[in-house]
Simulated assay, not measured.
Amino acid sequence: MDFSYNEEQQMLKDSVGKFVSQDYDWDSRRAIVDSDSGYSSAHWKLFADLGWLTVPFLEADGGLGGSAVDLIVVMEEMGKGLVVEPFMANTVLAGGLLSALADSGQKEALLAPLMAGELQLALAFAETENRYELNQIACGGEINGDTLVINGHKSMVLNGGVAQQLLVAIRTSGKPGDDSGISIALVDASAAGVNRKEYTTVDGQRAADIWFESVSIPVTALVGADGGALSALQATIDRAALAVCAEAVGAMQVSLTKTVEYSKIRKQFGVSLSTFQALQHRMARMFMEVEQAKSILLMAAMAMDHAGGYAPRELSAAKSRIGKAARKVSQESVQIHGGIGVTDDLDVGHYFKRLTSIQYLFGSTDWHTRRFAAA
């Protein structure tokens, strides 16, 4: 069986890879992380001009095709540069849910400017008590005639600080733990009663905690049917998990390469570290972990495309295996570099931070292991 990318996918890979290698050097990334917005508007416009923001969407929605394999091509290359622009949070996560639930009018109003790089969105779904269980939504939405009133709190909203519009997972009926009664509401981030606290995460990304205090919006702001959003939300979160798995594979490849290079130039007892057999074995194990991660990532992406976008068993297998690989590779990379590996000036420590964070995004390694076993 031929597992190589087709011509369009290879061109996409080369395009993103060229940007990362030529325009996303380490000093530039650090300046972007320290900026007020946490991302470069110039880079974001470039993403739109090159068509990268259309990759996750179906042709019917104006996108490039929307395959999972296309998505991992982009995310793997972005992972190599630790790109902090909100491609995953805005385009894959929020945009993906819009694509799954929105009617034609909402898609026309929101997806077109999103793909043009003119709109920043965020999906607010996580709460402090749900522990990756998406049916444990407690943030309430009460419908009174033509009005929907939202009260509650959302945590760790990726891109939540700069988003102009928020997609908010709310409970319009039932109680936490019920599969029914979960809806998605589109809320203007500047609406009365919306309070945001933005922060920079340990890996250089931006997120926010958001409070909704009697936020009143029209019922027409619901995206999709009232109370029936859980399945689409689950599929979207799984797709985002696949995206960060691909990002992790790219980051692990760079961590491995930099570690091998460092072992050749760093000397101990008058000889390079690469001559020590124990370290050779450790780096060989790192290589094996990266290769296994690549294989299971492609398996999950192909399974997702074959199953119409939702393959929870295969996705959990990939998230579990790649999470374990990310931990092994990132820790070995830092340890072989020694004390310099955890300094802020060296990029290896930042790859370690991002790979550690990915282990807990959209379901931890242990959570996905349990879900795979249950399936």
Results as ranks from 00 to 15, higher is better:
residue 175 K to R: 03
residue 201 T to Q: 14
residue 180 S to T: 13
residue 207 A to Q: 13
residue 181 G to S: 07
residue 200 T to V: 12
residue 209 D to E: 09
residue 225 A to N: 03
residue 185 A to V: 11
residue 180 S to V: 08
residue 181 G to N: 07
residue 181 G to T: 04
residue 189 A to W: 09
residue 197 K to G: 14
residue 213 E to T: 09
residue 208 A to E: 04
residue 183 S to K: 08
residue 222 L to K: 02
residue 197 K to E: 15
residue 207 A to K: 10
residue 199 Y to F: 15
residue 216 S to R: 11
residue 196 R to M: 15
residue 186 L to C: 12
residue 208 A to M: 08
residue 216 S to G: 00
residue 203 D to A: 13
residue 189 A to Q: 11
residue 183 S to L: 08
residue 208 A to N: 05
residue 179 D to A: 09
residue 196 R to A: 15
residue 177 G to E: 01
residue 187 V to G: 12
residue 192 A to W: 14
residue 217 I to L: 04
residue 181 G to Y: 06
residue 224 G to S: 00
residue 187 V to T: 13
residue 194 V to S: 10
residue 194 V to N: 07
residue 211 W to Y: 08
residue 219 V to E: 02
residue 220 T to P: 00
residue 222 L to C: 02
residue 205 Q to I: 03
residue 187 V to W: 12
residue 178 D to C: 05
residue 212 F to K: 05
residue 201 T to S: 13
residue 188 D to T: 12
residue 217 I to W: 03
residue 175 K to P: 02
residue 177 G to R: 05
residue 184 I to S: 05
residue 222 L to S: 02
residue 225 A to F: 00
residue 204 G to V: 13
residue 221 A to S: 06
residue 175 K to S: 03
residue 179 D to G: 06
residue 180 S to Q: 10
residue 185 A to F: 06
residue 222 L to F: 02
residue 218 P to V: 01
residue 223 V to D: 01
residue 203 D to C: 12
residue 184 I to A: 07
residue 184 I to M: 12
residue 188 D to S: 12
residue 201 T to M: 14
residue 198 E to Y: 06
residue 201 T to C: 08
residue 215 V to F: 04
residue 202 V to Q: 14
residue 220 T to A: 06
residue 220 T to L: 01
residue 190 S to G: 15
residue 201 T to G: 07
residue 208 A to L: 09
residue 178 D to I: 04
residue 177 G to Y: 04
residue 209 D to W: 01
residue 219 V to H: 07
residue 205 Q to L: 10
residue 194 V to R: 06
residue 212 F to A: 08
residue 186 L to V: 10
residue 179 D to T: 05
residue 191 A to E: 11
residue 185 A to T: 09
residue 175 K to D: 00
residue 213 E to R: 09
residue 185 A to Y: 06
residue 183 S to G: 10
residue 199 Y to K: 11
residue 179 D to F: 07
residue 217 I to D: 06
residue 215 V to E: 03
residue 211 W to E: 12
residue 213 E to W: 03
residue 219 V to K: 12
residue 180 S to K: 09
residue 178 D to M: 04
residue 210 I to M: 08
residue 197 K to D: 15
residue 179 D to S: 09
residue 177 G to A: 04
residue 213 E to V: 04
residue 176 P to T: 01
residue 189 A to I: 14
residue 224 G to D: 01
residue 206 R to T: 06
residue 214 S to L: 01
residue 212 F to Q: 05
residue 178 D to K: 03
residue 176 P to R: 01
residue 199 Y to I: 09
residue 178 D to E: 04
residue 216 S to F: 02
residue 181 G to A: 08
residue 180 S to G: 09
residue 188 D to V: 12
residue 180 S to A: 14
residue 184 I to G: 05
residue 211 W to F: 08
residue 206 R to P: 06
residue 176 P to E: 00
residue 217 I to R: 00
residue 216 S to Y: 01
residue 209 D to M: 05
residue 180 S to L: 10
